[in-house]
């Protein structure tokens, strides 16, 4: 019999195939904090057929919005999203790195105008998907440290 370390969830989202070691970053960028109101299970360093090791996050009673999915794609481009409704996988897809990143990250350059209280959303062009490399459309600064700059 297969041993389940964490039981299946009735409704919510399972984020699977998270790059090993980045589950805590995923929690941070989707805003799971002390005040979380539903059950969240975190599995780190789980054996994976595809990548050797992976992390998994299960969030009950919550489906992620497109901006949150974009954020996950930026820090773990191979993550898969399983939307669970009544114990069944209702939707399953791999996250996708968008061509343009708008309003989900701040520019890593402290001297950038977008960090100065101007009425604009920070915007980046994806220069490379592996590794993720973003260029600020305002100051041209290249950012590779995504999780530090996610809003």
């Amino acid at each position: 019999m297969k041993e389940f370390k964490v039981t299946p969830i009735r409704n919510g989202t399972v984020i699977d195939h998270i790059q090993v070691g980045t589950a805590l970053k995923v929690l941070r960028i989707i805003g799971v904090k002390e005040d979380v109101s539903s059950t969240v299970s975190v599995l780190m360093h789980v054996p994976s057929k595809k990548a050797g090791w992976k992390d998994i996050v299960k969030i009950e009673d919550r489906e992620l919005d497109p901006k949150e999915l974009d954020k996950i794609a930026l820090i773990s481009p191979d993550a898969t999203i399983n939307i669970i409704r009544d114990f069944n996988v209702a939707e399953k897809f791999v996250v996708e790195v968008p061509q343009k990143i708008v309003g989900i990250m701040k520019c890593a350059n402290p001297g950038c105008i977008t960090n100065k209280n101007e009425p604009v959303e920070p915007e980046f062009v994806v220069e490379s998907k592996k590794p993720i490399t973003l260029r600020c459309i305002y100051c041209d600064r290249i950012t590779t440290d995504i999780s530090e700059n996610v809003i």
Binding site: C107, G111, C112, I113, T114, V120, C136, I137, C139, R141
Partner: peptide, 13 residues
């Protein structure tokens, strides 16, 4: 001329 990087691009918008 502005001390912040990217100011001209923002102004252009």
């Amino acid at each position: 001329r502005h001390p912040q990087e990217g100011a001209a691009r923002l102004a252009g918008h």
